[in-house]
Design a protein around this nucleic acid. Sequence first.
DNA 1: TTAGGGTTAG
Length: 449
Amino acid sequence: MCVIGVPIDDYTMNIAIKCCCQLFRTKDGFALLGCCFRRAIVPTVFTFSTLLDGLIREDRILEAERLFKNLIKQKLCEPDVVTYSTMIKGLCKFGSNDMAIGLLRLMDERGCSWEEVSKMLKEMEDERISPDLQTFNVLVDAFCKEGKVDEAEAVIDIIVERGEVPNIVTYNTLIDGYCLRGEVRKARTLFDSITARGLIPSVITHNTLLNGYCKTLKIEEAMHMFHEITRKGLKPNIVTHNTMLQGLFRVGRCGAARRLFDEMRAQGQVPDECTYRIILDGLCNNHQVEEALSVFHLVGDSKLNSDVMVYTILIDGACKCGMLDIAKNLFHDLTIKGLRPNAWTYCVMISGLCGEGLLKEAKQLFQKMDECGCPPNNVTFRVLLQGYLKNQNYDDVEMLLQQMDGRGYSLDATTLSLLIDQVAAGALDRNMLKLMGRLVPKELMDTPV
DNA sequence: TTAGGGTTAG
């Protein structure tokens, strides 16, 4: 492989692989790795860490783990602190997501992989590879995303004990963690203390807190924060605008959202696909599905409209407004466009069908998921179960519960209480309670009644 | 040249 007669070296190859991985085309990255071997270019720890990160970005945790183990077993390279941190990030990501069944089997219990993480930290110690601030930031982030802010704070204590100084990323992550738990006041206090710690809050810091205000519907504080950014001489970016737009839609201020949209464009800010999704979703949630559909049609065939998420938003909006035919057409259109519905898309469509009592169609779609390589997840099962229960159709309930058990899935509080109600009413067999018990996640058991 | 933080549908 060469460009205009210049042979490709390992440096260039690594950059090319990085590009593939960042574009979610890790497969192409591996094809380039194959090229390396054929061309006697020796891949380095950079190459493998990049590919590992690519796999993790694409949620291909099993393959990431396999690659990581092979690196060591086949002595492909010596993993360094980046390799370990990347693998830890993957394990954390795995522990905090709705898992596919195969992945779940890998872990001893439902969900968490903290043991794996601590084992890996131990390994790093043995290999005398010292975790650095970034490794710890990965852990702070993972704990925050799980809602375990106390653990995140403990990690920060460890950072300080080790004589290291948390950086702005550490604090941004913790601010986000507080916001995710709805503790915006705590987030604000931390935000205000950042300067005293000798750090300067960045646009991301502001955006994070802005998002916290928006999510908790504190729109006045959000507007204040929005203006604070420019007042401080910082430049609001697309994320700032998207966050503020979403906040306005959430409190039903569609007109203000519209004005902000015009304003941002006048300032030269180019809306991105995220802006577009926020607008469509905002309109749908404010009973303006027709308006959302007309925006969608106005945009026409484009990159923006070749997006599964956009279709999912509109299908959901149409279903909730009783426009099931439109929802069905959209679902059909997206496949014609060559787009593949994901678990979320199936979920809103199944939910829409159940809402109209079309259980047979819902069941057919549900069964299609496995065939289409998009296995139903926890939420899909719950939605279908709720559909059956609300329509007083109990034939498939036990089978669905058994399938859930087999896949290592669990019930949420809503579905569980619907099920128990039906047992109490005599519509479902009492013997099913044992099966239901197995499907109750530990956290739900701990919840005080 | 490899890793970390903010917006995006059930």
